[in-house]
């Protein structure tokens, strides 16, 4: 659903607005859930999928109240992603205890355990080394913005201008971030994996 079609339906009244918001939720939920869960993990806020869903629903309920004033400058997906990211970052800065924190009780990241357990022959030895050693080290050594930048490049294949808009940072900052993190990653790969096979 594009911005214009969405706004047209929102203006048709409460019932159509509900339907439009519902459709938007249904279609965007898988994308937003992945990134929300990823962000919560990288901020060590939560590893529970339920928390990610609650947060997404919060954003949608607020959007339901405010969608008439949606300016349409970015796509709906980008707008919602930004709202979620800002909420998580604000939460980290202002009240880190209001969300369920990932504690030692959570044990080792179950995701990584799952990944390791799946002895998929298609996953190269090099990629397994990255999963086991490099990614956890990166998560400790870099801020969430940088990690998010890298993941957006890899998973979504975004260009510099697209990513600058999504993350609401100047392109120059983005390039500096990528450059700095690249050096760290290459050094980590060499140090932890002794170069890759």
């Amino acid at each position: 659903m594009d911005n214009e079609e969405f706004m047209r339906r929102v203006r048709l009244g409460d019932e159509q607005k509900r339907k439009a918001i519902g459709e938007l939720y249904y279609h965007e939920y898988p994308y937003l859930r992945r990134w929300t869960e990823r962000l919560l993990r990288s901020q060590s806020l939560s590893r529970r999928p339920d928390d990610a869903e609650d947060l997404i629903q919060d954003i949608f309920v607020r959007f339901f109240d405010a969608c008439e004033s949606f300016d349409g400058r970015a796509s709906l997906r980008t707008y919602l992603f930004q709202a979620i990211r800002n909420r998580i970052m604000d939460n980290t800065r202002t009240s880190p205890v209001t969300m369920v924190s990932a504690t030692a009780a959570d044990g080792e990241d179950s995701l990584l355990q799952n990944v390791r357990a799946a002895s998929d022959p298609e996953v190269s030895v090099a990629a397994k080394l990255c999963m086991e050693k490099v990614l956890p080290a990166l998560q400790k050594s870099h801020d969430a913005h940088t990690l998010l930048t890298y993941e957006q490049i890899i998973v979504e294949g975004r260009s510099y201008p697209e990513l600058a808009q999504l993350l609401e940072v100047p392109e120059v900052t983005l390039r500096q971030r990528v450059s700095a993190a690249m050096k760290t990653m290459q050094s980590l790969i060499n140090k932890l994996c002794g170069g890759l096979p």
């Binding site: 990944v115 090099a126 080394l129 990255c130 490099v134 890298y150 290459q186």
Partner: peptide
């Protein structure tokens, strides 16, 4: 290096 990192992130 880039391929290994890319594969790892996509897998996660």
């Amino acid at each position: 290096q880039a391929k290994a990192l890319r594969d790892a992130v996509l897998r996660e």
